[in-house]
């Protein structure tokens, strides 16, 4: 299985507000790419462009899976999910008045995932034993960390090939942030996923990333592998605020 996400030179915005400007990225098969930046720099907008929820005004977004090219700018969100892309959205967006189990089963809505429901469910319950214990509980009644686990598990229920994770650390205690990030790495390896993760927490994100992209005011100002990121002056100045 080969997968490749190529984002070339895209602009996007909301009305007169430009959120992304000439953004290019490349996520290769089995890679974990981290999109790094503080609030309001366009991370979520970029994720939404990949999911077809925001349409770029310029540029191309191509996803190749097993030799088949998909032009993501022409597909609806539902169609993008159906070709094997799942997103863990910012703020989790669970169905609060449905049970944990119902949330997971909704994750398997796409036809290709329905056949694998038993396998995926037992995998999710194994990865997150707490979800099994609480499968009859309403999703809205769980704590933030548990909800984040459920959101990730729900995305995995769709048997994705490409997983987008938008700000997994928001609203979590530091220990939970670390656990969540580690879990994403484990799941990625077990599932053979390709991951694109947007994150503000630089140190946590680069623990599991192969490659990082730094986005400032809607533009990618630096990209490189983790070693390059860590020693780059620009990164220290703009991002970490620890000028040498």
């Amino acid at each position: 299985m080969a997968l490749e996400l190529t984002i070339e030179n895209i602009d996007a915005g909301y009305g007169a507000v430009r959120a992304l400007q000439g953004v290019s990225m490349h996520v290769g098969n089995g890679e974990t790419a981290a999109l790094l930046g503080t609030n309001g720099n366009g991370k979520s907008t970029l994720m939404k462009c990949v999911m077809g929820m925001v349409r770029p005004t310029r540029g191309t977004l191509m996803l190749t899976i097993d030799g088949v090219e998909h032009d993501l700018t022409k597909l609806s969100t539902e169609e993008i999910v159906n070709i094997g892309v799942a997103m863990v959205p910012e703020g989790r967006r669970l169905f609060p008045r449905l049970t944990v189990e119902e949330n997971l089963l909704l994750g398997a809505f796409r036809p290709q995932a329905r056949a694998e429901i038993a396998k995926n469910a037992s995998f999710c319950y194994e990865a997150f034993p707490l979800l099994k214990e609480r499968r009859r509980q309403l999703a809205g009644s769980m704590s933030g960390g548990q909800q984040q686990m459920l959101a990730i598990a729900r995305a995995l229920m769709s048997s994705p090939k490409l997983l987008l994770v938008d700000e997994p650390s928001v609203g979590l205690a530091p220990i939970l942030v670390s656990q969540t990030i580690t879990k994403i790495k484990e799941l990625k390896e077990q599932y053979g996923l390709t991951v694109l993760m947007a994150e503000q927490n630089f140190h946590q994100a680069i623990r599991i990333a192969d490659r990082g992209y730094i986005i400032v005011h809607g533009e990618i100002v630096f990209d490189g592998n983790v070693a390059e990121l860590e020693k780059n002056d620009l990164v220290k100045n703009y991002y970490l605020g620890t000028a040498a």
Binding site: M53, E78, V81, N82, A86, L94, L98, F109, S158
Partner: peptide, 17 residues
């Protein structure tokens, strides 16, 4: 199940396909 979910969060339902 999608009918039960739809009024709770339409965007999330889209993300379920």
């Amino acid at each position: 199940r999608a009918i039960k979910a739809v009024a709770q969060d339409e965007t999330a339902l889209r993300l379920m396909g």
